[in-house]
Simulated scan of single mutants.
Amino acid sequence: MKKTGILNSNISRVVADMGHMDWLGIGDAGTPVPPETEKIDLAVSTNLPSFTQVLKEVLKELAVQKVYVAEEIKKQNPQQLENIKVILPNVEIEFIPHSELKQDLRRAKAFIRTGEETPFSNVILESGVIF
């Protein structure tokens, strides 16, 4: 049995397989996931687990150089945007239309669905390198 880090075998596998500039999505319970993108469903009930809980755990193991966030989060969920900025203080944030973010999930290795039920609680993480 794995002793530390991400215990979910699917998330652990995807993170271990990430290369430089690969994409991984994390988002709320309502995000439509394209059929060609692996969906790792963690949603148990409302806000369990939360978006920020999952994001923090993934970032313990994944080097991230850039994050893509829906433009709409600025007005419709500014508190979640602030959470993202605090969790990723030195990472570039690129804002794109939510419709584009949903389309871009086709490029992601996987999408992790949380129990989050606040609007626009979605990110695409672009992996960096550790050297």
Rank of each mutant, 00 (worst) to 15 (best):
M1S: 14
G5Y: 07
G5A: 06
I6K: 03
I6V: 15
S9H: 12
N10T: 12
R13Y: 12
R13E: 14
A16I: 08
D17N: 14
M18N: 05
M21P: 00
D22P: 02
D22N: 08
D22A: 02
L24M: 08
D28Y: 04
G30I: 02
P32I: 09
P34N: 04
P35A: 10
A43P: 07
V44R: 03
S45E: 13
S45L: 11
S50I: 08
F51I: 12
F51K: 04
T52V: 14
V54T: 11
K60Q: 13
E61A: 10
E61G: 00
V69S: 00
I73C: 09
K74M: 07
K74C: 06
K74P: 01
P78T: 06
P78H: 12
Q79H: 14
Q80A: 15
I84L: 05
V86N: 13
V86T: 13
P89D: 09
E92A: 11
I93S: 06
I96G: 06
P97N: 00
D104S: 14
R106G: 02
R106E: 09
R107S: 10
K109W: 01
K109H: 05
F111M: 09
R113P: 01
T114D: 01
P119F: 05
F120R: 04
N122A: 05
N122I: 01
L125H: 09
E126S: 09
S127G: 10
S127Y: 00
S127L: 09
S127T: 13
F131D: 12
